[in-house]
């Protein structure tokens, strides 16, 4: 009798497992996930305290399913230099825009088709498009919409374009 019960529990566990794992993975891949932000490259928007406290952000993956982003959005993407690493940056320019760079090879860069220009808010302390050039939209991972943790910093992340880039747009 006990053996029968045990077998039933195992069967229930296995069937639940085969429902729960794919649903969770798909949700994390398609809809939303959360991630801890490390590093100082997005100060002061994220991690303003430096290394003592790190923010947890909500990454919306549904927003970027058609690879549509706006200038000023904070997005996470796979680092073009290291495919194992994800980086979080602000979109500065989209395809066709002319960007004034900060310490890139050339002074002005025209963003090619299907690419975007990303920069960290903390200039000079960020490994961004000024180092590796425009990045392909295919590397886009998610759109960061909210700060979830710590609770006193709970807020919606607003799109924001740095002042020095506002004039460089080409609509």
């Amino acid at each position: 009798m006990a053996q029968l019960h045990g077998r039933r529990y195992v069967r229930a566990f296995i069937s639940g497992f085969f429902v729960a794992v794919p649903v969770t993975v798909t949700f994390l891949d398609r809809v939303a996930c959360i991630a801890r932000v490390e590093g100082v490259s997005m100060q002061p928007s994220l991690n303003p305290e430096g290394r003592h406290e790190s923010d947890v952000v909500l990454l919306n993956r549904w927003h970027i399913r058609k690879f549509e982003v706006q200038r000023g959005d904070i997005v996470s993407l796979v680092s073009p230099k290291n495919p194992e690493q994800k980086i979080i940056k602000r979109v500065i320019a989209l395809e066709g825009d002319i960007v004034k760079t900060l310490g890139h090879k050339t002074r002005y860069v025209k963003v090619p088709r299907g690419h975007m220009w990303v920069e960290g808010d903390h200039h000079g302390h960020s490994f961004d498009s000024n180092a590796f050039g425009p990045v392909s939209l295919g590397l886009l991972h998610a759109h960061a919409t909210h700060i979830l943790w710590p609770p006193n910093r709970w807020q919606k992340l607003k799109p924001l374009l740095p002042v020095e880039h506002e004039s460089a747009q080409n609509d």
Partner: peptide
């Protein structure tokens, strides 16, 4: 692979 200039 995804095309670098047309991600879809």
């Amino acid at each position: 692979a995804k095309s670098p200039d047309k991600p879809s």
